[in-house]
Amino acid sequence: MSETMTAIILGIVEGLTEFLPVSSTGHLILATELLGFDQADWEVFNIAIQPAAILAIVVLYWRTFWDVAKGLFGFEQGAINFVRNLLVAFFPAVLLGLALGDVIETMLGNAALVCWTLIIGGFAILAIERWANPPATGPGVAGVPLRTAVLIGIVQCLAMIPGVSRSGATILGAMAFGVDRKTAAEFSFFLAVPTLSGATVYQLYKHGAGLTADDYQLIGIGSVVGFVVALVVVKLFVEIVTRIGFAPFAWYRIVVGAAGLVWLAMR
C-alpha cells in the first residue's frame, strides 16, 4: 500500500473517531497494527493530523467562538465563564502530560492495551448511561460550575491511556457530574481545541526536526481528509447522543476490543 493511501486511511480514521467516545488514538494504533504499518513511522503523523479535527470544530461552532471573543472584549460574564471553564479543565492534562510524557509514549504502541481499555471503557459507558441521571437540558458550557469543570479536566487525564478516549472520558465524566448530554458533548468538543493543540505542538517540538518534505505532504493529505470527515461526524454525533444516548458506542467499543484481542492472539 502506498504512503499516500495510508495517509488517507488514517485521516479517515482520525476524522471518524476523534470526537466519538471510541478513542481516536486507539483506533489509529489498531489501524497501523492491522494494516501492517510500522508504529514508529506513523506515530508523529497520527498526532500531527489532529489539528484538522480541531479546525472542524472551529468551523462548525464559529458563531460560538465569535460570540465568546466579542464577549471577552466586553467583559461579559458568560464569555469569561466559558473561557475559564475550558482553561481549568485543560490545566490537569498539561501537568500530567509534562510529568508523564515519556511513559505515555511507551504505551502508544501497545495494541493489546488498546483492546482492553476499549472493552473496559465500553462497560463504563453502559454503567454511566444506566446510573447517571443528567438533566434533559442545561445552561451550556458557560453555565457549568467551576468545580465541575475542574473535575471534567481531571477525568480527561484518563484519556492519556490509549483506548480510553478523550471525548468519552470528558463527556461521560461530565454526565456523571450532572451535566446534560448536549452540554457534555459540546464541552468535550471545545475542550479539544486547547488539549489537542497543546499535544500537537508538544509532539512536533519533540519530534518535528526529523520530518521531511514528504512527511509534511502526507500530514497535509491526512489532515484534509480528517477535516472533511470530522465535519460530517460531529453533526451526526450530537443528534445521535441527544436522541439515543451513548449505548451504541459502548457496544461498538466492546465488540472492536474483543475482536482485536482475538486477532492479536491468532497472529
Rank of each mutant, 00 (worst) to 15 (best):
V225G: 03
V256K: 00
G245F: 00
D41N: 12
L151V: 14
L264E: 14
T195Y: 00
I8T: 07
A132E: 04
W131N: 10
P139E: 14
E239C: 01
V59G: 00
L86P: 06
G15Q: 02
D38V: 05
L72E: 09
A213D: 07
T64E: 09
A56G: 06
F91Y: 11
A169V: 11
L236R: 09
N110T: 01
W66C: 12
R253V: 01
A132C: 04
M107L: 15
K206S: 04
I8A: 08
A93V: 09
A99K: 13
I57R: 03
L87C: 14
E76L: 10
L60S: 14
G222H: 09
F73G: 13
L218C: 09
G210M: 05
I128V: 15
F82Y: 14
V228D: 13
S24H: 09
V83E: 11
V193R: 00
A258S: 12
P134F: 05
P134A: 02
F187I: 11
N110Q: 15
L264W: 07
V232R: 08
M1C: 04
A56E: 04
F75W: 15
A89W: 09
L86I: 11
F73V: 12
I119E: 04
T17V: 03
G210V: 05
D41T: 10
A149Q: 10
W42E: 03
D41R: 15
I119K: 00
G26Y: 09
G153N: 13
M107V: 08
L118D: 05
F45H: 05
G78M: 12
W131G: 04
V233P: 02
F90Q: 11
T137V: 11
V155K: 08
W131L: 14
G121M: 05
A142I: 02
P145A: 02
G222A: 08
G168D: 11
G168N: 10
A31H: 07
G153T: 11
L126H: 01
V94M: 11
A31K: 06
A142P: 01
M175P: 04
P21I: 11
Y252P: 05
